[in-house]
Computed example of a mutant assay.
Amino acid sequence: MTEPIRVLLVDDQELIRMGFRLVLDAEEDLVVVGEAGDGAEALARTAALEPDVVLMDVRMPGTDGIAATEAIVRAHPGTRVLVLTTFDLDEYAFGAIRAGASGFLLKDAQRQELLAAIRAVHRGDAVLAPRVTRRLLEHIGPRLAAPQPAHDPTASLTERERDVFLEMARGRTNAEIAGTLFLSESTVKTHVGRVLTKIEARDRIHAVILAHRLGFVD
């Protein structure tokens, strides 16, 4: 039997952590291995518990979620960080993405959205729900760190790689891309890796931002 996905909950509000725990512990393939109330505790708990996924709040007293995300990603590259945000302060959300988070999710996400996001991040996908991505780009697009490329970094993509790139830009997971393009997930994974290398994107999230900046998607 496959080992369950080990999740660490990080939020300064105990009731929110309790709610997430009730949802996650009801799933056979997920297990909450610990909780933390701030970023410093999250880093310590990650080192001690080695979770697969950290569900990370952004705004917390003391060490915030951005600093904690950056420290966790640097010290524990095998651990994925899924950021939770209310989007009332958009720079926090983008700061966490720049720090190396694998995705972001609104705190009011539905139960199935949350579960799917954790599983997707664990598989190595980025969680980029179109609604959230659109809001992120609308609010913080002008503050993106990277300048407009002097050349088209997608010029070297093959036709199939370009198809995969466009599906990535729409926020689709490997499984969804496979279904749309009638490919196997392993083939999609290979194409994704090649696309990221060719366009010199650090990860899928940066690939999505680049696609929007270049006008490949609205």
Score class of each variant (00 low, 15 high):
130 P>N: 03
190 T>L: 14
183 L>D: 01
210 L>C: 01
164 V>F: 13
154 T>D: 07
155 A>M: 13
122 H>L: 04
60 M>P: 12
32 V>G: 04
6 R>G: 04
200 E>D: 14
88 D>V: 12
158 T>I: 10
34 G>W: 09
30 L>A: 09
118 I>T: 07
160 R>H: 09
50 E>W: 01
76 H>R: 14
34 G>A: 14
65 G>K: 03
182 F>C: 05
107 K>A: 08
115 L>A: 10
54 V>T: 10
5 I>G: 03
68 A>C: 05
102 S>Y: 00
59 R>S: 11
161 E>K: 00
167 E>Q: 12
209 I>D: 02
84 L>I: 04
203 D>R: 01
151 H>Y: 15
210 L>K: 15
13 Q>T: 11
20 F>V: 13
127 V>M: 00
7 V>P: 01
187 T>V: 14
54 V>H: 06
103 G>N: 09
148 Q>T: 13
56 M>W: 03
75 A>S: 15
193 G>H: 08
51 P>R: 02
98 R>W: 04
58 V>G: 12
142 P>L: 02
103 G>T: 13
167 E>L: 12
145 A>I: 07
115 L>V: 15
195 V>A: 10
89 L>A: 09
120 A>Y: 09
20 F>L: 13
37 G>N: 08
191 H>F: 08
166 L>H: 04
76 H>F: 06
83 V>A: 11
116 A>F: 06
194 R>F: 02
71 A>K: 15
101 A>T: 02
96 A>M: 14
153 P>Q: 12
95 G>M: 09
160 R>V: 14
129 A>W: 02
82 L>W: 04
167 E>H: 10
168 M>A: 06
189 K>P: 03
174 N>L: 12
194 R>G: 10
136 L>K: 00
48 A>C: 01
109 A>Y: 05
143 R>V: 13
80 R>W: 00
26 A>M: 13
41 E>S: 15
26 A>Q: 10
179 G>I: 01
73 V>F: 12
174 N>I: 10
206 H>W: 02
135 R>T: 15
32 V>C: 06
179 G>H: 13
128 L>W: 12
56 M>N: 08
121 V>N: 01
177 I>R: 06
127 V>S: 01
205 I>A: 02
14 E>R: 11
175 A>E: 11
188 V>G: 01
199 I>V: 15
92 Y>V: 07
18 M>C: 05
100 G>S: 01
7 V>K: 00
3 E>N: 06
161 E>H: 02
67 A>K: 09
123 R>T: 07
49 L>C: 13
77 P>M: 08
211 A>Q: 00
164 V>L: 05
160 R>S: 05
159 E>R: 03
